[in-house]
Amino acid sequence: MAAEQWFANLSFYVVALVTLASALGVVLARQVIHAACLLLPTLAGIAALFALLGGHLLMAIQILVYVGAINVLIIFAVLLLHRQVDRQRRILAGTQHLFAGVTGAGAVTLALVVGALFSNLPQLVGGEQGRFGDDVVAGIGEMFLTKYLLAFELTGILLLVTMIGAIVLARKERDQ
């Protein structure tokens, strides 16, 4: 048992190291494109942390949504706009470490607060187990369609509105 615990700890430390190092790289990178690309190991590291905690569904969705969609989107945006952003970053160049430090401190504080508040989290959320046991996906699916149906439908409508907005914004003007 001690060996398993040791190995679990080691995995956590390795993953956390990779995540934190890439996150630092995102903040401190000199070129924006490097920052956007270093976001990949950061988000993937978070997915690995989910996996280490046993949240496989969250890991898969993290990879699918964050890495596969949001990071791609960010990289595309950076590719289109990096000249402007680089110019702005040069203006802020001296202060970026200050920003990084303040943000980091704020994030750590927030994490501590949240951790303290929600250290009873399993008891708070743990009530829904039962019918589906290990099958997380089925359980979440059932909750989407029964207990959290309104939230689910509203999210769908929000996505629809977003898509329509994107199409409207990206549409070329019709010629007269």
Binding site: C37, M59, A60, L64, V67, G68, V72, D134, V136
Partner: peptide, 22 residues
């Protein structure tokens, strides 16, 4: 034997896009 195997597969092939762009 991931019980979310299929989502994992799709997610992972999406990571390939980043390799192409890079």
């Amino acid at each position: 034997d991931l019980n979310v195997g299929l989502i994992y597969v799709i997610g992972v092939t999406s990571v390939g896009v980043l390799g192409v762009v890079m």
